[in-house]
Design a protein around this nucleic acid. Structure first.
Lengths: 169, 169
DNA sequence: CGAACTCGGATACTTCTTGTCCGAGACAAT
DNA sequence: ATTGTCTCGGACAAGAAGTATCCGAGTTCG
């Protein structure tokens, strides 16, 4: 019962994208977080497929949030990266074996499945109650507004190509 | 984010053990549920290691619940089989990269980890609220008391060895 | 005392997650 | 309009974890 590690990366990226005004390339997000650029690309593709971000190709391309941060919940990100499958899948073993219940008698899920579904719903509800905007507000609360402002400036700073060009001079 | 499949087997076994008055061998539980005996043994060993059941060796051996079903929660079984590790592990990527926060500034978990921990707590609370006794009561509610009574009779029925001896005559 | 039955841990196999790579497409500058 | 460079997107391996199985150590009963 472990959540995919890419979820953490994706959430951090969403918070960072909150501050951006231009498309941010995956490579830059990877550099900011000091993680594998190749693998982070995979997570961003998942977000794109789920419709949480849009990808802009070309020279000044990158990723942009499609909606306001208040309208993106943690659950959306988790479902996009980790999959929307439930945590527990009932294999209906009550119908198997010598004393298995007949299929007609199994009109509702078995007690175990019901309890598991309830716990799953509670988990999802907690995740849905927190939006990306809430997370950004939490960062401001912890470190002050300067933190995200600093990231904002770093993001709009010189690109690798520009830096390389400047070095050449 | 998928729960280990063995959890379902272990829960069903616990409910069945509720009705038993004598130790039940793993092979018999496997036959009742029509699942792999070798693999089910692994789950029962996990329950034994966690102290939820005790193992009795020898000819009339098997597994027995250590406490009353009311005192065993689903969370206990999940933790025993699937592990007690949290669903989300924060790798502190906020401290990494060119704009990483200093370690002194990170006195409390980051907002993402806080939200995830809250959801995890909600999930665990829901699992802890349901006991094995509640599950057994749910079975009675769905199928009537005859179902568990039938299993009880089947469990105390002839053993494989006795059956084989009867066949030989 | 012997024999049969039980659990327990050590051992292969399969599946999923993780991690990486290169090609197709698009924008910008020339 | 064309060229070049930068971007994403999906296809391609490596590793870890879960799944499934077996045989030996120990115990109980006849």
């Amino acid at each position: 019962m472990k959540l995919s590690g890419g979820v953490e990366w994706a959430l951090h990226c969403c918070v960072v994208l909150t501050t951006a005004t231009q498309p941010v390339p995956a490579a830059r997000l990877a550099e900011l977080h000091d993680v594998s650029a190749s693998y982070l690309a995979k997570q961003l593709q998942a977000l794109s497929r789920a419709g949480l971000v849009t990808s802009v190709q070309g020279k000044a391309g990158g990723y942009v949030l499609t909606r306001a941060p208040e309208l993106i919940t943690i659950l959306d990100v988790v479902a996009a990266v980790d999959g929307a499958q439930p945590t527990f899948v009932c294999t209906e073993i009550r119908q198997r074996g010598p004393l298995g219940a007949s299929q007609e008698a199994c009109t509702r899920p078995c007690p175990i499945a019901r309890a598991m579904a309830g716990a799953d719903a509670a988990w999802r509800a907690a995740l849905q109650a927190v939006s990306i905007a809430d997370l950004a507000a939490g960062v401001d609360e912890d470190y002050g507004p300067t933190a995200l402002a600093g990231i904002r400036g770093w993001l709009s700073g010189p690109r690798d190509s520009d830096t390389a060009a400047a070095e050449r001079r």
